[in-house]
């Protein structure tokens, strides 16, 4: 669990506050939160990959709390 809690902290390298906090984006952010899938919905079941290229099902994310944070190299 500790690892999960650390997740958000580790991945701030992709956080660009210049975009995140501009007022112009606030409405977009609010709309995003309201849009589907919303809080209370199930996580869509999709097939993706692990970083070493093995298939991974999002449906397997059961049994524990998981933080999913999107990001990229730049």
């Amino acid at each position: 669990m500790r690892c999960v809690i650390l997740l958000g902290l580790v991945l701030v390298f992709v956080s660009l506050p210049m975009e995140a906090r501009s007022q112009g984006n606030q409405k977009k952010f609010d709309d995003f939160v309201k849009a589907s899938p919303a809080v209370g919905d199930s996580l869509p079941e999709l097939s993706v990959f692990t970083s070493d290229g093995k298939p991974f099902q999002t449906a397997d994310l059961h049994g524990h709390y998981t933080v999913l944070t999107f990001g990229c190299l730049t």
């Binding site: 992709v14 199930s42 869509p44 994310l61 709390y65 933080v67 999913l68 999107f70």
Partner: peptide, 24 residues
């Protein structure tokens, strides 16, 4: 999951979204 660059979700043990935000 909404097409954002740095969005964030928390999924509970049943696979249900319990938190979401547009920016990490």
């Amino acid at each position: 999951l909404g097409d954002r660059a740095n969005s964030e979700y928390i999924i509970d043990p049943t696979g249900t979204i319990v938190r979401k935000r547009a920016w990490s």
